[in-house]
Design a protein around this nucleic acid. Structure first.
Lengths: 337, 337
DNA sequence: CTGTTAGCGCTTTCAT
DNA sequence: ATGAAAGCGCTAACAG
């Protein structure tokens, strides 16, 4: 049996409420008593039962965190982790706890995300990697719990969303390739069911169609994994009408593709230029060093927390924020000869 | 104001206790009433306040999770994430919640990890990436809360630890290099203050000293990051008495080193063989494909959860488990000519 | 300043 | 089968 406030009351001869006041350093209690209580508490090894205090305070000081795309997560190839450290720091600063929620891979069996949060009195929720056809999307939009969605736009009274301006990012890449005289550009897509993937692809499509250079065979379906990029690279290697450049929807697929091309004796960037998206740290260290689009994960995470607490504490309405991406030129892209 | 059990009691004309029984599907309540209660609850949008029920049940159904090495985490280059998905799944299966604890980077300012857990009535704790000179180590060892430590051996009445047999892993690598006739082997170390790093280095030391081939200049201090591997590679490139092989304490440093060597026109593996440790997914896709030591992260995570719940539910004593590593031969290593 | 009382939302004896 | 009452550990309003 852990020691409670009651035990301290008995030992000190004070009332429970006096002890509570002392422990919480309230004003209406003498310094002597405070000292005494603290000393006894220390000696008894007292630890406050935060669950109980949260119940009476009607305040959980807890945030819920959902991370999706588990398949990617498994291989630590998930951008979610890029945000995590910043989120943890910022949340801790504000004295909140984080409940890390899992989601059943079995769609049908899923309990409502909102219910999980409601039952735990969660004050705010963060979603990372939410799918654009997730069955609970509408429910999330309707909820009263302040919510921030990363990498996916969602509007609603208590919803903010933070993402990269993917259209701008892809345009950045495409325009750069244009400067290098590339017109035959292949695209390796990510998962179809996340928004950022759709936007990246659509931006590519529009550009290529505008240039009358859109060819089905240059569009490769990937899933953001290294493996799918590798497979994509092999597929492109087999093409008779090869592109001069490949734009991948993320760095990992770009790296996978480069691996495959290299194996097929197609050299990057001499034969084919490759450009990624994400600016993962590793992209700077592979050979050739990868040209890519930078996302400022840390900035995004900071904005997420800022928006969330604005909603929680000041009841401010949700906002949609798009962060500007940046082109990082390295060695995997070269001018067409 | 959220709807409570009391509201349902009023609406149904039943008592609070009857409603509680109905909601929890207990035996001593008629089926009709159960149905009625459930229907009203549904209509009112009732959600159980789990905090309250945990308080009375004296059971938090919550696990604490600590992830250290934040500096690495920040770049998603942390093996911690490799375990995370499995841990989340297994914990969810058992109907437990996970509290993700942050640790102040400011050592002095740190609240005791144990206190954080105690206050939240956490039933079990998992530590990933605990430093071997963490100030709270002794406290962790003393705690009554069932605890599992990953990647670090720690013994105590309620402590289990799960790790890779790092000595075996490094021996695997070294023996393989020996088969390839390498005698001049450099080593890129990780952080000095985590156990796995120490073991990996010591195993290398012993081997080299046994062969009378140990040279200070072949030992490079890294920190597990790509960058430090890159710097290490540059350092090695400058050596007059160059090694014929580099063993890095993890894949990321190996990849960084390869990057640097390549830039210095030292080709891997023709000039220098490189071998990593971890078998990160990416290692299969870079050029040259990296020879490395595999750690079965998923297996490790499964063991962690198994041990933890054995301790929590069956009061079984903690165990120290070492998982066997495996050598993965790829293209970054070659026989000395 | 200090103690008494009530109560957060839920569960569980124990009568009825 | 149902309800009254007590209580989990803590805090807050109010009296004294």
């Amino acid at each position: 049996m852990p020691v409670t406030i009651k035990d301290i009351a008995l030992k000190t001869g004070l009332s429970v409420s006096a002890v509570s006041k002392a422990l919480n350093d309230k004003g209406d209690i003498s310094e002597e008593q405070k000292a005494k209580v603290r000393q006894i508490a220390e000696r008894l090894g007292y630890k406050k039962n935060i669950l109980a205090s949260r119940l009476v305070n009607q305040k959980s000081n807890t945030l819920g965190l959902f991370i999706f795309s588990r398949n990617l997560m498994w291989s630590s190839e998930n951008s979610a982790f890029k945000y995590l450290s910043t989120i943890m720091d910022e949340v801790k600063k504000r004295q909140y706890d984080i409940l890390l929620f899992s989601v059943d891979s079995d769609l049908a069996n899923r309990q409502s995300y909102i219910d999980m949060c409601l039952e735990r009195q969660v004050e705010g929720v963060i979603y990372i990697g939410l799918g654009s056809n997730d069955p609970h999307l509408e429910e999330i939009r309707q909820t009263d719990i302040p919510t921030v969605v990363l990498e996916h736009t969602l509007t609603g009274k208590n919803i903010s969303s933070v993402g990269i301006d993917n259209q701008k990012g892809i345009d950045l890449a495409l325009n750069y390739l244009e400067e290098l005289d590339h017109t035959k550009i292949a695209f390796i897509k990510g998962f179809n069911d996340v928004e950022l993937s759709q936007v990246r692809f659509e931006t590519y499509c529009e550009y290529m169609k505008k240039k009358s250079q859109y060819h089905e065979s240059w569009v490769i379906q990937g899933d953001f994994s290294l493996k799918s990029g590798y497979d994509g690279g092999n597929q492109i290697a087999k093409l008779t009408d090869k592109p001069t450049a490949i734009l991948a929807a993320n760095d990992l697929m770009a790296i996978g593709a480069i691996g495959a091309l290299t194996e097929q004796n197609i050299s990057v960037p001499q034969d084919i230029s490759v450009i990624g998206y994400d600016n993962f740290d590793i992209s700077k260290y592979i050979t050739p060093r990868l040209t890519t689009i930078d996302q400022n994960f840390k900035q995004m995470a900071t904005v997420v927390i800022h928006l969330l607490f604005e909603m929680i504490q000041h009841n401010i309405q949700g906002k949609q924020v798009l962060i500007d991406p940046e082109l990082i030129v390295r060695d995997s892209t070269v001018k067409v000869v």
